[in-house]
Design a protein around this nucleic acid. Structure first.
Length: 415
RNA sequence: CGGAGUGUAGCGUAGCUCGGUAGCGCGCAGCGUUCGGGACGCUGAGGUCGACGGUUCGAAUCCGUCCACUCCGACCA
């Protein structure tokens, strides 16, 4: 894509109110824009990153046999009355509930268990219809008491939620463990090292849940964990003390701040029983459905990545989620051979299927283009200028030094 | 919801104590010169000073109420 055609602008300075590094850099780079506290526009560059994250999630979930679909965000009260959660005090704290002009009551989705159960009630009659594994990517609304930390805690944000329905606890737990592994894998692909942490079930279940935590000082959570990796608990539920020896001899337990990027819940039969949605087993007996739910916040993941990967000049995206693979910069303002060369390189990369952002702006100085390239944080910077002759300058975003390659070598390295 | 802070052009800010034509930098538009780390000159556009009310001949400035944003806390898939 030509940078001259990208909507959005880089800025030298962030708004002074924004203290969170993720907000500062994402705003300065032209990835996001704030409408109000906790409510953000994903500008074209930001959406590209989210789409990369989402595609990784999608690929990995599909491997488990899950199906993508899309559920509504505007929910009628009666579905939520079936589970009893409409009137739950804790739920009412975070769910936007309102009446329309005809006094009909609606809620904005902060999760989809009720909607999934409603759908299951129509499509699941027999044990032969199970298991079901469905997910979607959509907006979640949560009336947070306090939106904060840039895009890490919003009132309206992107979420991927997966729901699985099974005939038995055993089946549910089997898939639950599979998703746990899948989450580990997908977070790794995204570029995040996560720690699976035992935690409470919140307003979703009285049972435990597992959170996927990324170590970070800016995180809101605190976890106690074994450095050997075989134990981690959120301190909100943990009763063990820091300094206690790990069972497997990995030394003393440690405490650390962390960001929760995912959370999975073995919900069990509660929703099935509350909402009276059953299937018939081999003997024709009605049985409750075992439900589990799984969620990842892609916008929070994006913010977490910026918190983890940046330097004093800007963002340093991991390759897998960078908005583009390489950033081609043309240093020239006329229509000489340099411009022709840059255009040729751009066309070549494009036709080779490489994601390239081409800074073709003619009214911007070299220094500004370099500063912008650092800010935007694409992994590889390519420069074509008078200095480069018939070669192309290659520089990794993290590298200090540059090297000169032929167009063919550049192509080879990028494919 | 409690505590603290901040609101002046798209962004950063001066002016407020002590009331008297709202200024600067970046960015933006035009022209020219530049072109490897956020270039330079000239010209120009852009503001109901967060909102409402009060005091006053006169309010960005003083007083009151409200709103918004940020941070700390409470809260929290």
């Amino acid at each position: 894509m030509r940078y001259s055609l990208v909507f959005g602008k880089t800025r030298r300075e962030a708004p002074k109110d924004e203290v969170a590094v993720n907000a500062q850099l994402l705003i300065r780079g032209g990835f996001i824009d704030k409408l109000m506290a906790g409510s953000w526009t994903l500008l074209p560059l930001g959406l590209l990153v989210i789409n990369k994250i989402n595609n990784i999630i999608r690929e990995e979930l599909n491997k488990t046999g899950a199906n993508e679909m899309l559920m509504p965000l505007l929910h009628p009260r009666d579905v939520w009355d079936k589970s009893g959660r409409w009137s739950n005090k804790d739920v009412q704290q975070i769910m936007y509930q309102f009446k329309d002009i005809h006094e009909k009551e609606f809620g904005l989705s902060f999760t989809h268990e009720e909607i999934v159960m409603y759908i299951l009630s129509k499509f699941i009659q027999s044990y032969k219809d199970l298991p079901v594994k469905v997910y979607h990517f959509s907006t979640k609304f949560r009336n947070e008491p306090r939106a904060k930390s840039g895009i890490l805690r919003g009132r309206e944000f992107m979420m991927n939620d997966l729901y699985s329905a099974h005939v038995s606890k055993k089946n549910m737990m089997q898939y639950y463990e599979e998703v746990k592994k899948t989450y580990m894998k997908l977070f790794k692909r995204i570029g995040l090292d996560v720690v699976v942490t035992e935690a409470s079930g919140g307003v979703f279940t009285k049972e435990y849940s597992h959170e996927f935590q990324v170590f970070s000082e800016v995180g809101e959570d605190e976890i106690i964990y074994c450095p050997g990796g075989d134990f981690a608990q959120n301190t909100e539920i943990s009763s063990v003390a820091e300094g206690k020896q790990c069972d497997l001899g990995h030394g003393p337990l440690k405490k650390a701040r962390s960001i929760e990027v995912g959370n999975i819940f073995p919900l069990g039969t509660k929703y099935s029983k509350d909402m009276k949605v059953f299937y018939k087993d081999e003997k024709g007996q009605e049985q409750p459905i075992w439900l589990a739910s799984y969620g990842i916040g892609p916008t929070r993941v994006m913010g977490t990545l910026v918190e983890m990967y940046h330097d004093d000049r800007g963002i340093v995206w991991p390759k897998s989620v960078a908005p583009f693979h390489c950033h081609l910069v043309a240093i020239t303002r006329d229509t000489t051979h340099v411009t022709r060369m840059a255009n040729d390189v751009y066309e070549k990369l494009q036709s080779a299927g490489i994601d390239v952002l081409f800074d073709d702006r003619t009214d911007v100085s070299a220094g500004e283009k370099f500063a912008d390239a650092d800010l935007v944080g694409i992994p590889v910077r390519l420069v074509v200028s008078e200095k480069t002759g018939d070669k192309i300058e290659w520089k990794g975003r993290k590298d200090k030094d540059t090297e000169f390659l032929t167009p063919d070598d550049v192509l080879k390295r990028l494919t």
